[in-house]
Design a protein around this nucleic acid. Structure first.
Lengths: 250, 250
DNA sequence: AAGTGGTCTAGACCACTTG
DNA sequence: AAGTGGTCTAGACCACTTG
């Protein structure tokens, strides 16, 4: 670390404060690189370093050819993740479509369905044998056309063969309702939540900067006998999601 | 966007693949900037851009004066956040210390206790009047000496006056047990989880790069009459936490 | 003492957007 | 046509770590 703050950080701090004071509102353009070079008497790279820092913080977005703009905080998609009860399922259609509608978004989902065989990790998670057939549903969820979530569900093929779970449209209540119709009694779900920087592939699919925070949720559905029947890996754009959980006191 | 990939991205991609192939193991040093300048025939800044990209992804850490190193993935602190039941409380001491012990960390907590008055937002969240006295407990949690979480609890002073909640050490079961002893019947907790890039202040307190993902959790404790009795805002280092929630199927 | 990553200057070219 | 952000070169200095 240098003993005194490097120039690019001072420039970044000045711009940050200006935004916080409301001098530049969300969506508005910040001074251009050239303007800042003159104002501070620095080289191009120094201004670029300041822009990079502000972008990493998520305070601004940059549009090459156009300018640097204060980020408009998008309305949060509130995902009441405890809304997986039977009652909620029979009322709603698919979970994501319900959540998006509740948040005022136009939702769309793209589904790719495949039959694969389980590798060791997945076989372990689903209590099946490696090499067993599994049904894979890969989905891209969009809100107002913008991709906001990638999700991959995997279920033992033995549970899904001949059901609407292998169709694009799984019908009212989604795959959980179809599982129960097929005789599976769901008992509970376990969700593990973590965050990390987006990988390069995720960044491309979700249209965010590489390294931008994503929420990663693995949900496992467990039946009355304690057997896992579905593993759902979800990757959500950090900006667009807020997960809500309710926990009993006893 | 340039039509062909800029040189710094190709350098970053090469290094990423080398790490993925296992050529450089976690903790090991990557080739130095000078070595890469020669190997690729590029300027210092170009190598620096590659390093910056890999750091944003969280793949490497850089130590000025020493080198660029493959990040060692730290053992995850598994926070079974559904462990707020009465039974678990009476068994454990404080929640964080229990979690850390279960994950094999040496935990330490630094507490700062203050009495403040509620601003409008907080008064709204706690169902009290703006200006009412509140007890504020600001904590920094460390695992093996490294800061991993900042937490700020706020409770109406009326509930905490004369209890151990206003002491540094709140005793067995923590503040929830003290609240129940004082006649508060807890009913449930609501946790809202989101992620965002660390602010500059948080980054300094948590010893991470500005913009690194943090998990932000707001927990509200609600009593049997539906009144919120505590608001706890937590900021966790993204790398170090995995939150676990269990949801009933009906 | 030699090597490291971080930052800087001054100047250049590029693809792109805006009026 | 003028302006924008992104990237690059070539060279420099700095504080720091390593042997």
């Amino acid at each position: 670390m240098t003993p005194e703050e490097p120039p690019y950080r001072r420039i970044a701090a000045d711009l940050r404060q200006a935004v916080e004071r409301g001098e530049y509102r969300p969506g508005q353009q910040l001074p251009s690189g050239s303007a800042l070079m003159k104002r501070y008497g620095v080289a191009r790279q120094t201004v670029q370093n300041a822009f990079d820092a502000l972008r990493a913080e998520g305070l601004v977005t940059t549009q090459p050819g156009a300018g640097v703009f204060v980020r408009t905080k998008p309305a949060v998609t509130r995902l009441a993740r405890n809304r997986l009860s039977r009652a909620a399922r029979t009322a709603n259609q698919a979970t994501f479509l319900g959540d998006a509608a509740a948040s005022g978004f136009t939702a769309s989902v793209e589904v790719e369905i495949r039959i694969e065989t389980a590798d060791e990790h997945l076989a372990d998670a689903l209590h099946i044998e490696a090499g067993d057939e599994i049904l894979v549903r890969r989905r891209t969820m969009r809100a107002d056309g913008e991709p906001v979530q990638l999700a991959t569900s995997r279920l033992p093929r033995r549970l899904t063969a001949g059901t609407a779970i292998e169709q694009e449209n799984t019908g009212p209540g989604g795959i959980y309702s179809r599982l129960e119709e097929a005789g599976v009694r769901l008992d509970h779900f376990v969700e593990r939540v973590l965050t990390r920087p987006a990988t390069v592939d995720e960044a491309a699919l979700l249209n965010v900067a590489a390294g931008a925070p994503v929420l990663v949720v693995r949900r496992v559905a467990i039946d009355e006998s304690g057997t896992p029947v579905e593993v759902n890996d979800m990757t959500m754009v950090g900006d667009r999601y807020e997960l809500v959980y309710e926990l009993a006191a006893d």
